[in-house]
C-alpha cells in the first residue's frame, strides 16, 4: 500500500498538439504549475500544419511520470501522447559552440577534434571557430566536455533533443 517509488529515471514523451497560439504555454505551464522539472522540450510543425509535435524529456519517478502523462492526455490541446521511454527511437540534438580567443595551435587542435568526435566546423575568423554538432544528446554532452577540457572561451547553444520512433535501428 502507498508504496513510495524511488525510481527516478529519464523519460521521453512525444506529444502531438494543436499548432495554435498558447499551446506551448499550456504544456510548459502544466509542467511548471505542478512543479514537474523538465530536462528539455522541443517543438515544431509536423507534416500536417495544424499539428505540432513536442519532444519532452524529463527525469521523474513512476508515480510522477504517470501523473504527467495523464495530465497531458486530458488536456484539450494535446491530441496524442506517446511514451518513448521504452520504445526504440532515434534522437538528435543540434548544438552550436562558438570557441573564441583561439591561436593557430588551438584552431588546429579543434579541427583534429572535429575529425575524432564527428562534429563540424561551420564558420570561423582569425580567432574564433563555430562548431555544429548534430548528434544524440549524450554524444553532444561528450563533445562539449571534450571541448571544455581544452578551451575556455565558449558560447554554447543547445536545441534539446527531438525524437522519432525508429524503423529498425535505435539511436538515443
Amino acid at each position: 500500500m502507498n508504496k513510495t517509488d524511488n525510481d527516478m529515471k529519464r523519460r521521453w514523451l512525444s506529444l502531438f498538439v494543436e499548432n495554435r497560439i498558447g499551446v506551448l504555454a499550456r504544456v510548459s505551464g502544466l509542467l511548471s504549475g505542478k512543479s514537474y522539472n523538465i530536462h528539455s522540450l522541443t517543438v515544431g510543425e509536423t507534416e500536417n500544419p495544424e499539428v505540432s509535435r513536442m519532444t519532452v524529456c524529463l527525469d521523474a519517478d513512476d508515480r510522477t511520470y504517470e501523473q504527467i502523462t495523464k495530465q497531458f492526455n486530458r488536456s484539450v490541446e494535446v491530441i496524442k501522447v506517446i511514451d518513448f521511454t521504452n520504445l526504440s527511437i532515434r534522437t538528435k540534438e543540434v548544438m552550436f559552440i562558438k570557441v573564441s580567443g583561439l591561436n593557430d595551435r588551438g584552431r588546429a587542435e579543434l579541427f583534429q577534434m572535429a575529425q575524432a568526435f564527428k562534429f563540424r566546423i561551420k564558420d570561423m575568423d582569425s580567432d574564433s571557430v563555430l562548431v555544429e554538432a548534430v548528434r544524440t544528446e549524450i554524444k553532444n554532452d561528450s563533445i562539449l566536455n571534450a571541448i571544455r577540457s581544452r578551451f575556455t572561451n565558449l558560447e554554447v547553444v543547445r536545441g534539446g533533443p527531438v525524437a522519432i520512433e525508429s524503423i529498425s535501428m535505435q539511436d538515443r
Binding site: M1, N2, K3, E66, Q67, K70, N73, R74
Partner: peptide
C-alpha cells in the same frame, strides 16, 4: 493502510494521484 482500494473516477488524472 489496511485496505485494498478500488477507485472510480471520470478523471484518469485523479486516479493514483495521491493514494496508490
Amino acid at each position: 493502510t489496511e485496505a485494498k482500494i478500488i477507485h472510480i473516477d471520470i478523471d484518469t488524472a485523479s486516479i493514483s494521484k495521491n493514494v496508490t
